Amino acid sequence: MLYGWHPVSEALGNERRGLRRLLASENALLRLQETFGETLRITPEVVRPSEIGRLLGADAVHQGLYLEADPLPAPELDAMPADALLLALDQITDPHNVGAIVRTAAAFGVTGILTTVRHAPGATGVLAKSASGGLEHVPFITVRNLAEALITLGERGFTRIGLDSDAEVELGALEPRRPLVIVLGAEGKGLRERTRSCCDTLAKIPFSGAIRSLNVSNAAAITLYALGREPVSKAP
C-alpha cells in the first residue's frame, strides 16, 4: 500500500513492481499523464482526495495518489555482486527512520538493505512515504536471524563494519573494501551484543560539538558518505 507522489510515481515506473489498484484525484492523474504520457501500466480509478483520505487516515499526506501493489522480489544473499554495499538494520523499528535510511541508501547506490522478519517495519505505507521513492531502487533482504546472516556474509568475503558510539576507531580512519556491509543499531539501544560480535570492526562518528548523538537516519547518511566512497575489491 503506497501513497504520495514519489512512492507511487516511482512504483509506476518500475517494471518489476506488480500493480493491483491505483486511485488518483483528477489533479494527480494529470500530473501522472504529464510524466508518463497517456498510457499508464494500470488503469486508474479517478476519485476525490477525500476518498483516499478515508482509506489512509487524516494524517496521511497522499497528494491524491494511492496504489496497491505487490511486494518487490528480494535478492538472495548468495546473489550479491563482488562490489556489493549493504546496510544491515539491527531492530530499527520506526518506519520514519527506516524510510529515511532507504532514501539515503538509494542516493548512495546501496545494493540492498538487510532486515529481520521480526522487529522491523513493513516496506509499505509510512515507510514508503518517508523513503520518497527509494523503495523501488534499494531492495530489502529479509532474514530470520541477523547474526547468522552476518556470519554468512563474512564467510563470503564481506567486510562487516558496525556503527557504535563507544568504539575506539573513527570512521575516517577506515579504508573500507567491498563487498561491504554496514551494520546500524536502534537509537538508544545501539547494536545488540550478538550483532557486535559478528562485526569485523566497530567504528564511531567523531563529534566535536555539544551533542554527541544523531538520529539513526542521519548517522546512516554520514556513515555511507564516509565508507561508501567507491568500490574497492577485497584483498585476497
Rank of each mutant, 00 (worst) to 15 (best):
V110I: 07
G133A: 03
E168M: 09
I113W: 08
L114C: 03
V98A: 01
S208Y: 13
Q33T: 03
L191V: 00
R192S: 10
F108Y: 15
K129G: 05
L77M: 10
N145L: 07
A105R: 05
R177V: 12
V98N: 03
G122A: 12
P75Y: 03
A167E: 08
E148R: 11
A100C: 10
A24V: 07
H62V: 05
E170I: 11
N145C: 09
L86E: 01
G57I: 04
E168L: 12
I52T: 07
R192I: 01
L224Y: 01
G209R: 06
R17A: 14
V216W: 01
T201H: 07
S50F: 10
I113G: 13
T39P: 08
G134L: 05
R103T: 03
E76G: 13
T201Q: 12
S9A: 14
S132Y: 07
G162Y: 00
T104A: 14
E15A: 13
R20L: 14
A74C: 09
L86G: 05
A79K: 15
S132W: 09
A105L: 03
A123H: 06
L227H: 00
I182H: 12
D94I: 00
A235E: 13
K189H: 10
D164P: 07
A210N: 11
L32T: 13
H137I: 10
G190C: 02
T152A: 11
I205H: 00
R103K: 04
A221E: 03
R21L: 14
T124K: 12
D83N: 13
S130D: 11
A226C: 08
Y225W: 09
E51N: 11
G125C: 10
L202F: 02
L67A: 00
A226R: 07
A219I: 00
A203D: 01
I42L: 15
A60W: 11
Q91E: 15
G64N: 06
L87H: 05
I52Q: 11
L224V: 07
A88M: 10
L163N: 06
A120I: 03
T43Y: 08
E10I: 14
V47R: 15
A186I: 00
A131C: 04
R178W: 15
V216R: 02
A58Q: 13
F36C: 03
P176Q: 04
A28N: 06
L12T: 14
L224W: 08
I151C: 12
L184D: 09
I222R: 09
G134K: 02
L55N: 03
E136V: 08
D70Y: 02
L86F: 08
G37V: 00
E187I: 00
E168W: 07
A147S: 14
T93P: 08
A11C: 12
V102A: 12
E68G: 01
A235G: 07
R160G: 06
G125H: 02
K129E: 14
G209K: 05
A220I: 01
I161P: 06
D94L: 01
L12R: 15
G18K: 15
L65T: 04
E34T: 15
G64F: 07
L227K: 01
V8C: 11
A173L: 08
S132K: 15
I113A: 04
A107L: 11
V47H: 11
H119V: 08
N14A: 15
S9Q: 14
L150F: 01
G4E: 09
A74T: 15
V46D: 07
G209C: 04
T223D: 01
H6E: 15
G18V: 10
S130W: 05
G133Y: 08
A221F: 02
